[in-house]
Amino acid sequence: MNSYIDYTSPGTQFAFDVNTNPIFKKDPYNYLNLLSVKQLNTLTNLSLLDIFLSIGNVVEPHYHQNAAELVYCISGAAEISLLNPFTKQLLHFNVVPGQVVNLPQGWWHYEIATLDNTHLLAIFDAPVPDVIYGSDILRLTPTNVLAYTYCLDEAKLKDTLAPLTDTVVLGPPNGCSYNPVHAQTAHKQSVNQAPVEHQAANQKYGHHHRIQQY
């Protein structure tokens, strides 16, 4: 239920510069800006995340327990993937400017940029979007519990997860040696080579669904 807004109050806010509220910054090309009711007090059941990515960077797998999300591509291109909990299918959608993907509340999902200068706008139907990141689930669940539950080698699992000392948010982490695409394109603005890079990225991440056009 929406709280009462006193539109006569001198503290009522009707405008805000989202650029002034970064919530995570990996580098100059990969960062997130947030707008919620905490920044603009006249918002009701609405908030948004301004997402900037270069090729190969990913908003790590996560879910929002209190909000559905509509992702709109402003520039660049991205693959948006979501797990349908009813069919157990992992769906992939490649978006370009003007296209959207709807992510129902509580569904596991992630976004990967397939072009440099990718700009996505995520709109939530909640005044403040909550989020649970995959890196937090992996690093905060005791390794002995994971190993026991899934019949895994605990020593190997502990060694594998050891680098996860904090929430990732935007991956891969800087200096990652396991991702050749990211290593070759980190901190690189390649506008002239964008079509070639887009093709290569689609080959790597898969092009499973095209957005229907009319």
Rank of each mutant, 00 (worst) to 15 (best):
T87C: 03
S75V: 01
A67P: 01
Q212V: 15
L53K: 00
A67F: 00
V18K: 02
L91P: 05
S36V: 00
V169S: 04
T114D: 00
G206I: 00
I211M: 09
Q212D: 14
T118I: 06
V37G: 11
A15L: 13
L121G: 04
W108F: 15
K158D: 14
N30Q: 00
L157R: 04
P172Q: 05
D153Q: 07
G98T: 08
L83Q: 08
T12A: 15
Y72P: 08
I112R: 10
E197G: 11
T143L: 08
R210L: 13
Q193W: 04
P28C: 05
Y63C: 09
K156L: 15
I137W: 02
Y72V: 14
Q39K: 09
R210A: 14
G134F: 05
Q193G: 03
T143C: 12
T149D: 05
Q99P: 10
P172R: 08
L40I: 04
Y178Q: 13
I112G: 07
A126Y: 06
Y7L: 11
N117I: 12
S81L: 09
P10I: 07
A147D: 08
T149G: 11
S190D: 13
L157W: 06
C73E: 05
D153V: 04
L91F: 11
D125K: 02
E111Q: 15
Y110Q: 01
T141V: 15
T165A: 02
P97L: 14
I23Y: 06
I211W: 06
R139C: 08
K204L: 15
A113W: 03
E79P: 10
K156F: 13
P127A: 09
L53C: 00
N33G: 08
Y4H: 13
K156E: 12
E197S: 12
I123K: 07
P10R: 06
I55D: 09
Y110N: 01
Q99C: 05
